Amino acid sequence: MTPVKPERLHIDDTVAIVSPSWGGPSVFPHIYELGLGLLQRWGLQVVEYPTARMAAAELAANPEARAADINRAFADPQVKAIIASIGGDDSHRILPYLDAKLIAAHPKILMGYSDVSTLHAYCQRLGVVTLHGPSVMAGFAQMAAMPDYAAHVKEMLFRPAAGLTYRPYPAYSEGYPDWAHPAKAGQVNEPIPHDGWHVLQGSSAVEGRLFGGCLDVLEGLRGGEFWPLGNFWDGRIVFLETSEEAPGPALVAEMLRGWGRDGIWGRAAALLVGRAARYDAAAKAELDRLLRTIMADEFGRPDMPIVSNMDFGHTDPQFVLPQGILARLDCSRPSLSLIEDWLS
């Protein structure tokens, strides 16, 4: 399927903020407002939809209201982008209420990560390009402390151009200082030196369309009504990362084996694995070992490139990865590049 590309952002464009999962803005409004402030400083008009600040308990009880906001945002001709306030754990409940025809007919930027992976998967089945990247509260709210990160995200939203090559950041942080203390708002935890990407298999270059997100979340969709099937997986560069819950390497391995039994690893072109949040060095090494064992020994794919410890997912800064866009992975360097525009 030829990807349907939303329009890029321009100064004075309108951005809709929704809460498709957890009602974090109602709990930590000072964090949420920091993220909104950055978007406004970029010259964007921010419109908060009814679910954006809805009380967390009320939001949890109303998946249909969350979906209605997303449908309205896609239908509104003034809205050029939809950004999630934060992730959570139950956005799968809104999928039956989304209007597939409406979304396909009015593509626009959708950005978020973690539990927003359900929405990315939904839109990919429609062929609509979305952006796996920061949310308002977890990412945008902290970007003043990470100017290189802010520059990358702004480029992805405003200046999409084929030929972009991702570069590892020299350091990263995990989690944030306690959001209950307003004085610490916008701060990040102590930076950790980044030891680079780990090429576990592969020595050449492959090309394929990107698809992925949070493994924990996607596992909940696998095999169901909203899961991509069949030749969708042919030649895909799959990118996966684990949540802040830090599922252990053995549990991650079992999830990946399930994907293999579904035939996905026999079809995919490559696997990219994000930096595992809250893993120590031993757990990261064990995950790398299991990735090689599962692909090469259990599913007969010693040829499939695998690169782990990449800069996306539940650590900061993270790459913005456009779902459905053609990318090139070169294991000999290693490097990852986008080889077509991701927005129109």
Rank of each mutant, 00 (worst) to 15 (best):
L59R: 10
A60W: 06
A61I: 05
A61F: 05
A61S: 14
N62R: 15
P63M: 03
P63E: 03
A65R: 02
R66S: 11
A68I: 00
D69Y: 01
I70Y: 03
I70L: 11
I70P: 01
R72L: 11
A73P: 09
F74V: 06
A75W: 08
D76T: 06
P77H: 13
P77Q: 13
P77M: 11
Q78E: 15
Q78G: 10
V79I: 14
K80N: 02
A81K: 10
A81L: 10
A81Y: 08
A81F: 06
I82K: 00
I83A: 03
I83E: 09
A84F: 05
S85E: 01
S85A: 15
I86Q: 14
G87R: 02
G88T: 08
D89E: 15
D89T: 15
D89A: 15
D90A: 14
S91A: 15
S91G: 14
H92Y: 13
R93Y: 08
I94C: 03
I94P: 07
L95H: 03
L95R: 01
P96Y: 10
P96K: 08
P96I: 05
Y97N: 09
Y97V: 07
D99H: 06
K101L: 13
L102P: 07
I103H: 10
I103M: 10
A104Q: 11
A105I: 02
H106W: 05
H106P: 00
H106S: 04
P107W: 13
P107I: 13
K108Q: 02
I109T: 10
L110C: 10
M111G: 01
M111T: 09
Y113M: 11
Y113W: 09
Y113I: 08
D115G: 03
V116M: 01
V116N: 03
S117Y: 04
T118C: 14
H120L: 02
A121W: 03
A121M: 03
A121N: 00
A121Y: 08
Y122E: 03
Y122C: 04
C123W: 07
R125N: 11
R125Y: 05
L126K: 10
L126T: 06
V128K: 06
V128L: 01
V129T: 15
T130S: 15
L131T: 06
H132Q: 01
G133W: 00
P134D: 12
